[in-house]
Amino acid sequence: MSDKTLSRKDAIDSVWKLADSIDFCFLITWDGERQRARPLSARPDRDENRIYFLIGVEGEKDDQIAKFPTVSLAFADVRSHDYLALTGQAEVTNDREKIRELWSGADRAFWDDADDPSIRLLSVTPEDAELWLGPNRLIAGAKMLGAALTGAKADFGENVKVDHL
């Protein structure tokens, strides 16, 4: 992977574009002894500088976030070899208005409707990010083959760190 540098603006644009296009990510919490990862559907809102999730009230994640609000989000688009890791501050609330605003038909797989009392809103305010922008699968395969044949190292795209989103 190369260490080419995008401009700060382009890097931030890429962070939000990836978070918006990938949809599902892993939420990684800490319980004081170990990490726990859970797949969740992300609802990024760049204008609010938040990534929202609808979550169930049950489970240990609420207590973990209350005690250790720094979380990580890991997004992966394996077809294009694009990856995004975010660190930020999380908060779980019962903001019924925002829950109704974010509700979609896909949420019926988990709850009857947006007014289900067991739905909570998880908000993550991103602080730092690292992204890897790679070529699509066809190009990546060609680069791997070329590297294998020539013995050269394959260049799989850009790796960028963004502090203080």
Rank of each mutant, 00 (worst) to 15 (best):
residue 91 E to M: 13
residue 28 I to S: 03
residue 91 E to G: 13
residue 131 L to I: 08
residue 161 K to L: 09
residue 35 Q to C: 12
residue 111 W to S: 04
residue 65 I to P: 04
residue 147 A to C: 09
residue 16 W to N: 02
residue 23 D to T: 14
residue 6 L to P: 05
residue 89 Q to D: 13
residue 147 A to G: 10
residue 86 L to Q: 08
residue 125 T to E: 12
residue 17 K to R: 15
residue 9 K to A: 13
residue 47 D to V: 07
residue 9 K to R: 11
residue 29 T to I: 04
residue 110 F to D: 11
residue 55 I to E: 02
residue 25 C to Q: 02
residue 8 R to Y: 15
residue 101 E to W: 10
residue 86 L to M: 12
residue 136 N to A: 03
residue 79 R to Y: 13
residue 136 N to G: 10
residue 163 D to E: 14
residue 87 T to Q: 14
residue 79 R to P: 11
residue 105 G to C: 05
residue 134 G to D: 03
residue 165 L to C: 11
residue 25 C to E: 03
residue 11 A to K: 05
residue 87 T to K: 11
residue 162 V to W: 05
residue 53 F to A: 03
residue 147 A to H: 06
residue 36 R to P: 02
residue 72 S to F: 07
residue 41 S to H: 12
residue 150 T to M: 09
residue 30 W to L: 01
residue 23 D to E: 14
residue 94 N to W: 08
residue 62 D to Y: 07
residue 96 R to H: 05
residue 9 K to Q: 13
residue 12 I to Y: 08
residue 6 L to N: 03
residue 131 L to C: 02
residue 97 E to L: 15
residue 126 P to D: 03
residue 25 C to R: 01
residue 53 F to G: 00
residue 123 S to Y: 04
residue 75 F to S: 02
residue 66 A to E: 05
residue 24 F to W: 14
residue 16 W to H: 03
residue 35 Q to I: 11
residue 110 F to E: 11
residue 8 R to M: 11
residue 152 A to T: 10
residue 24 F to L: 14
residue 48 E to R: 07
residue 84 L to R: 06
residue 38 R to I: 12
residue 104 S to P: 05
residue 144 M to N: 04
residue 107 D to F: 14
residue 133 L to C: 05
residue 9 K to I: 13
residue 129 A to N: 00
residue 97 E to C: 10
residue 159 N to W: 12
residue 6 L to W: 04
residue 129 A to F: 00
residue 47 D to I: 04
residue 37 A to V: 10
residue 113 D to S: 15
residue 76 A to D: 12
residue 36 R to I: 09
residue 88 G to F: 09
residue 124 V to T: 07
residue 49 N to G: 07
residue 100 R to Q: 14
residue 84 L to H: 09
residue 132 W to E: 01
residue 148 A to K: 09
residue 8 R to C: 07
residue 93 T to W: 08
residue 117 P to A: 12
residue 141 G to I: 09
residue 67 K to R: 13
residue 88 G to R: 08
residue 112 D to C: 04
residue 30 W to N: 02
residue 7 S to T: 14
residue 145 L to C: 02
residue 115 D to G: 12
residue 80 S to A: 14
residue 87 T to H: 11
residue 145 L to S: 06
residue 122 L to T: 03
residue 150 T to K: 01
residue 132 W to T: 09
residue 164 H to T: 13
residue 10 D to S: 11
residue 109 A to L: 14
residue 98 K to D: 06
residue 96 R to F: 03
residue 92 V to H: 05
residue 93 T to V: 08
residue 5 T to P: 04
residue 140 A to I: 10
residue 84 L to N: 06
residue 56 G to T: 12
residue 139 I to A: 06
residue 26 F to R: 00
residue 81 H to F: 15
residue 105 G to R: 04
residue 63 D to R: 10
residue 52 Y to A: 00
residue 97 E to F: 15
residue 15 V to G: 09
residue 56 G to R: 08
residue 32 G to M: 00
residue 115 D to T: 14
residue 25 C to F: 08
